[in-house]
């Protein structure tokens, strides 16, 4: 069978297994708008305009509005769009899985993630022992849990928590840290510097780091998770500083999503969420080196 055909069958099983996983655990599948009035403000994510608004870069803000409205276990699988992201691991249009739990923190959703990876690997490829790009990978039972500070001290020789430097942080992540941890089992990079918190809350006992983790397997960055920031005032401050930063770099500055802010002000329960790239997980399970190898139609627009 030709590889794309085989990979699309695998992808279909992956989508099915993912839905089964969440539905069995009392999550409900929801859909939120693809076209939004304003995208979430993030330092390095650019949105693609659509009509009077934008294509969503992530479903995060709408999903949090549902949490604020009382939904406690929700998941969504759907497309997201990011301007200019095109490479072996990126496509401007791709498929994201996001799930959120009320009354949970980033450790609780790590348990979800590990169980999900275990369960979909068994359902899709019948095993948790894989080969990815020539490297043997044991998805279970051990995941290495590493703190971001320790990873940088060991592999890049500096402490990003004590002295944050965004440029250097990003450069060393791809050049030093990620290659070093592309080992035979999954790695969790946890507790990002507060300056790289994005929408995560700071750790109450250690406010110089944020309750955020990322999952890497075989050199692929698969998922990003937070204990969600629920403090509306703090969120507004972060959005405003992000807007200033974007303005200084000459990037488009998006309006703050006031409907989301009102939901936060009305009260978002303690909650945690994970965003996981379905295409990347399909790449891992299919042993594909390029994202286009697991997509039926690689985006045609340039």
């Amino acid at each position: 069978m030709d590889p794309l055909r085989r990979n699309l069958r695998l992808r279909s099983r992956l989508l099915q297994a993912t839905r089964d996983f969440f539905l069995e655990r009392d999550f409900i599948e929801i859909e939120t708008p693809l076209r939004v009035a304003t995208p979430a403000l993030e330092s390095h994510i650019d949105a693609i305009p659509s009509g009077s608004g934008f294509l969503r870069t992530s479903p995060e803000l709408h999903m949090k509005r549902l949490l604020a409205a009382g939904h406690s276990r929700i998941f969504q699988i759907g497309p997201c769009f990011r301007h200019g992201e095109r490479g072996d691991l990126h496509n401007p249009e791709y498929t994201m899985l996001e799930w959120y739990r009320a009354d949970a923190n980033y450790s609780d959703v790590l348990v979800d993630t590990k169980t999900l990876v275990d369960s979909v690997a068994r359902a899709v490829v019948g095993s948790t022992s894989l080969t990815y790009q020539g490297r043997a990978i044991e998805l279970m039972p051990v995941w290495d849990y590493c703190r971001v500070r320790d990873l940088y001290l060991e592999h890049a020789g500096w402490d990003p928590v004590a002295n944050f430097d965004g440029d250097r942080f990003d450069r060393d992540m791809t050049a030093k840290v990620m290659p070093a941890i592309a080992q035979g089992r999954p790695v969790i990079m946890a507790d990002y510097p507060a300056s790289a918190a994005a929408l995560a809350r700071l750790k109450p006992t250690q406010p110089e780091v944020a309750e955020r983790w990322e999952l890497c397997i075989g050199g692929l960055e698969l998922a990003n998770a937070y204990s969600e920031l629920t403090d509306a005032a703090e969120q507004r401050t972060r959005f405003e500083s992000c807007a200033r930063e974007r303005h200084q770099r000459g990037q488009a500055v998006y309006e703050i999503d006031e409907k989301f802010m009102r939901a936060l002000e009305s009260g978002l329960p303690d909650c945690a969420g994970v965003a996981l790239g379905i295409d990347r997980l399909a790449m891992l399970l299919a042993d594909a080196s390029r994202i286009g190898d697991v997509m039926a139609f690689r985006e045609e627009l340039s």
């Binding site: 990126h90 942080f169 992540m173 791809t174």
Partner: peptide, 29 residues
């Protein structure tokens, strides 16, 4: 050419380039 972008971080465009006059090469990000 390769495009890399760590989670939430900046995009980095890695290029290997060849000087069209003297053939020397460089790598730039």
């Amino acid at each position: 050419f390769s495009f890399v972008k760590p989670g939430k971080g900046q995009a980095i465009y890695n290029c290997k380039l060849k000087n069209m006059v003297n053939g020397s090469t460089l790598s730039r990000a």
